[in-house]
Amino acid sequence: MTYFFSGRPALYVAKKIGYGCVNLSFAPYGEYWREVRKFVILELLGPKRVQMFQFVRDEEVGVMIDSIAHKCYGIVNLSEVTVILANNVLCRCAFGNKYDGEGEIGMGRSH
């Protein structure tokens, strides 16, 4: 049995969604994992890159607060609102547009 990710067995799902366990989350610890981790930390999660998208986070938090404010007497599902916030921030940073909820990025909504 093959063990990856902190000594856990390599799962079939991880192999399929992780392109054969080559992504950072599922790759076995070793030289390849260290190189991918270094790239992710320096290029994707570095201070410059994170700061570059601060405006996106600020705008999306404002949208979230406005949506909660408009439901002043209604019940707000904070789990759902938080997932929508995270999804919109991720899609805007990665793809440049919000996810419209219908399987297409950027169709029907603008930022």
Rank of each mutant, 00 (worst) to 15 (best):
M1C: 05
M1T: 07
T2C: 02
T2W: 08
F4D: 13
F5A: 07
S6R: 07
S6G: 11
R8Q: 13
R8Y: 12
R8S: 07
R8K: 12
A10D: 02
A10G: 07
L11V: 09
L11N: 03
V13R: 06
A14M: 10
K16I: 09
Y19E: 04
Y19Q: 01
Y19P: 00
C21Y: 14
V22S: 03
V22I: 11
L24W: 10
L24C: 04
L24Y: 13
S25E: 03
F26K: 01
A27T: 14
A27F: 03
A27K: 04
P28T: 10
Y29R: 12
G30T: 10
Y32V: 12
Y32R: 04
Y32M: 07
W33V: 09
W33Y: 13
E35H: 15
V36T: 15
R37Q: 13
R37Y: 13
K38P: 08
K38H: 12
V40L: 07
I41V: 15
I41E: 14
L42I: 14
E43M: 09
E43S: 13
L44I: 12
L44Q: 11
L45W: 13
G46H: 14
R49F: 07
M52K: 14
F53P: 02
F53D: 01
F53Q: 06
Q54K: 15
V56L: 05
V56H: 01
R57N: 09
R57L: 06
R57P: 03
D58K: 15
V61N: 04
G62D: 10
M64H: 12
M64W: 12
I65W: 05
D66Y: 03
S67N: 10
S67Q: 09
A69E: 12
A69I: 08
K71A: 05
K71W: 06
C72Q: 02
C72L: 07
Y73C: 04
G74Y: 11
I75P: 00
I75V: 12
V76I: 15
N77M: 07
N77P: 02
S79V: 08
E80L: 07
E80F: 05
E80S: 08
V81F: 13
V81G: 00
T82M: 15
V83E: 10
V83A: 10
I84K: 09
L85H: 02
A86G: 05
N87I: 09
V89T: 09
L90H: 01
L90I: 13
L90Q: 04
C91S: 14
C91D: 00
R92Q: 08
C93K: 04
A94M: 04
A94Q: 00
N97P: 00
K98T: 04
K98Y: 05
Y99P: 03
D100F: 00
D100N: 15
D100G: 01
E102Q: 05
E104C: 04
E104F: 03
I105V: 13
M107H: 08
M107E: 00
G108S: 05
R109N: 10
R109T: 12
H111M: 08
H111W: 06
